[in-house]
Amino acid sequence: MKKEKAGRKSGHETKPIKKHINKLVIRFFVFIFWIFIWEAACRIINQELFLPSPFSVLLSIIDLAAKQVFWLSILNSFIRIFIGFLLGIVSGAVLAVISYKSKLIYELISPLMKIIKSTPVASFIILALVWISSKNLSVLIAFLMVLPISFSNLLYGLKSTDIKLLEMAKVFRLSGWKRIKAIYLPALLPFLKSAVSVGLGFSFKSGIAAEVIGRPANSIGLNLYEAKLYLMIKELFAWTTVIIIISVLFEKIVVKLIGNYGHDKKYANKP
């Protein structure tokens, strides 16, 4: 019996640890570089009211972290924005699937998505304040910001699914679930990752903006507003830093989770 070994390289090798460490070192120095620039700018201006130093912002964060209201505000804002984000991703996915199946539905939904995408966030926030309570404003705004991103990304992903594999599925009479698992999900995952990555950033930015205008109790937005109102610039920077940290951390976690779900670790060398 003729035997043959795998012709191509399996590509199972993991990234060399050294390369990974190098990357981390570079990132660390980039971070230090920008902190240095910030510090230098701060010393040149020499006015804490206009530009506080990185160290005083750090102290301000530590100071804020000691208060219960800090954590409560983060939790409240995070939950509301996350709900809006999740609703946006799921609704966008559902609408993308329906639009993929029906040209008529696509024609119907597509202009709506374009309008949502092009409308300034401020217009939505002011308009929405008339309709709903300020507490739920960030949910709606985060939802509206994520919806068109999720819709267009996932629809594009569905449209770029390998037609030859879909034909194979048809000939072999594969069930809907098998088609989703084998063909659609792997094709959609990069687009979902991109939607989540972009959508999370947008939802945090717009959600906090909505809170600044709506000013619901115990929220990051209200704290930002008050910091600006009373010219507490260090706190303003501290809250902004916190928002950036939460947004980036959460994006990393969600994208990682999607990656882990979509990738069979055994065969991590997807082509």
Binding site: M1, K3, E4, A6, S10, K266, Y267, N269, K270, P271
Partner: peptide
């Protein structure tokens, strides 16, 4: 798979197999 001479294919994505495999 063995009957038609296929070995060394286990736990590998098919993308890493040769054209004949």
């Amino acid at each position: 798979l063995n009957k038609i001479g296929l070995t060394d294919y286990e736990k590998k994505p098919v993308s890493s197999l040769s054209g004949g495999m």
